[in-house]
Amino acid sequence: MIEMIDLTKIFTIRKRKLFAFHSSMDHKTIKALDHVNLKVRPGELFGLLGPNGAGKTTLIKLLSTLLIPDEGTAYVNGFSILEDPMNVRKSIGTLFSVGDRGFFWRLDGYKNLEFFASIYNVPRNKRKERIQQLLEIVGLSHESSIIYQRYSLGMKRKLMLARALLPDPPILFLDEPTANLDPISARSIRSYIKTTLSQDFKKTIIYTTHNIEEAAELCDRICVLHVGHVLALDTPDNIRNMVKTKKIIEIVIKNVTPRQIEQLEALNKTSLEYQVDNDETNQYRIQLCMDRLDSLSVIIRFLSQHRIEVVDLSYKKPTLEEAFIYLVQKRNQ
């Protein structure tokens, strides 16, 4: 379980003037996190979603004890990040989004993992097996003897993920784990995180991403962060439904006259967009934009009365992306 209580982080930005010392420095403070209260349940795959500068990485670093909060605290696996950081570190595996730092460039992939296995307290008799297993999972088993500096960005990312999983911790902080990965590798990693780590091994995972659909696909709940504030916290479906836009129904109809189209437009009262789909069969693709779905029954009745053939009918749900943009814009207003 992870609990954040009024977690606040303020950064001071100093604007230095050339050849000037302290007296002439301008200070500016940025609240990267502002009294964030969140609870991540045991075994939950929890998504952190937000634009650049939302505070996602700051939050992960606070929970990993690499940053100290200015206010509030957090408990990771029951241990306080302020009072018991060593036990917090024993409970977590981390993957940060910062470039390709943290590895030793003259060592190969295997030896890098061997070093980290030691400092992450992986039992000596299990190290070799664990490293080989992880290299297999991330798809680096054939490249494990190549020195790190020859790795591509994607390979480095995979090695980072392997390192995060090395100690087999109950809690994982994954900061954009699929960044720089090709689509096939990204899909395979996502599937491993969702199926094996989350569903089979019941790991508690905080997963940050910019990719909205990725978060929707993977996460049990999503927290939308924006400039240090929690804008929304719910399941992906419920977050989608927060969008207060009009309902969009798309109908493909056949054997319809222009006059009937006008009548439909009048019936819908709000707006109707149509395009000719097929000239020969008089097939039209009509998008009805309505405030409430119950006005659809009037349209259906009209189509039925005039024996207009319905070829297809679909309801366009708002995407999570639309929800995200809606939430951010609402906050900015």
């Binding site: 004890t65 024993k90 977590i92 910062v98 730092r101 400092i119």
Partner: peptide, 14 residues
């Protein structure tokens, strides 16, 4: 070195 300091400090190493 800041290159790897965070990675070592996030581990359970004294």
């Amino acid at each position: 070195s800041p290159w790897w300091l965070e990675e070592v400090l996030v581990s359970p190493t004294r």
